[in-house]
């Protein structure tokens, strides 16, 4: 067997049994730099050896209420701990500050977690936000740019090509969060509450992950109990009668 055949065999084994023969660093010889991982074990296992890539568009898709932003927040917390600069463009201004405040206050060290959201009363088209994403990609200051399309919005092909062009000259990764599946980009993560096992104590989120045409499915449990506990004192008693 020649050296080339031996290498081809190893490559083939690695594709069939990922991680058992070679790790990602050996295969690519490239720096993974911690960004490839989302910090959510089950999703990372499906995306082995590398999850998200810089200079690429990754889709984070799910209907209006599907658990996608909950999992994204977990990933953002992990990336903030790794000292990445992140900008989150919330095109419809639906996010709540209290959900994200503790990441900004506890996980960010020298890095930044910025949000871009519409000013009160101002309505801007999606094209305005595409332009802003373009600016952030070109700035080379942010490792991860997250573009949240909100509900019922979709990027046009023209916008995609514009963003792809911007990514080529950037070192950032672009995450497009939306409600509708798209065929652009090579990695797509889809989310949905697991209807069969909707439990309020520990709801499950079903994830379908498509990477380079190959799909896999997994489930991630999240907890409801600890959410949004920003209150540090007991509630002030309402001293008046209920009907007052």
């Amino acid at each position: 067997m020649t050296a080339q055949q031996v290498l081809a065999l190893k490559q083939s084994l690695e594709e069939r049994f990922p991680g058992l023969w070679l790790n990602g660093e050996n295969l690519s010889g490239a720096e993974i730099s911690g960004f490839g991982q989302t910090g959510i074990e089950r999703i990372d296992a499906c995306l082995s050896p590398r999850a998200l890539n810089r200079q690429r568009i990754t889709h984070w898709v799910g209907p209006g209420s599907s658990g996608k932003t909950t999992l994204l927040r977990k990933a953002v917390a992990k990336w903030c701990e790794a000292e990445f600069n992140i900008v989150y463009i919330d095109t419809q201004g639906q996010l709540m500050a209290n959900d994200w405040a503790y990441i900004n206050e506890n996980h960010c060290k020298k890095n930044r977690l910025w949000f871009v959201r519409p000013d009160a009363g101002e309505v801007k088209t999606l094209n305005h936000y595409v332009g802003v994403v373009d600016l952030f990609l070109a700035s080379r200051a942010f490792d991860i740019v997250i573009m949240d399309l909100g509900t019922n919005q979709k990027l046009s092909l023209l916008s995609y090509s514009r963003l792809q062009r911007a990514l080529q000259n950037s070192k950032s990764a672009l995450l497009v969060v939306g409600s509708q599946a798209d065929n652009q980009g090579n990695i797509q993560l889809g989310f949905q509450w697991d209807i069969q096992s909707v439990q309020l104590h520990e709801p499950q989120i079903a994830c379908s992950i498509t990477k380079n045409g190959l799909s896999s499915k997994t489930e991630v449990a999240v907890s409801l109990d600890e959410s949004n506990c920003l209150f540090t004192h007991p509630q002030i008693c309402d001293r008046r009668s209920r009907e007052a």
Partner: peptide, 10 residues
């Protein structure tokens, strides 16, 4: 707030 546990609201 345990490392992003809990659900996010919109």
């Amino acid at each position: 707030t345990k490392n992003g546990a809990g659900l996010v609201m919109r």
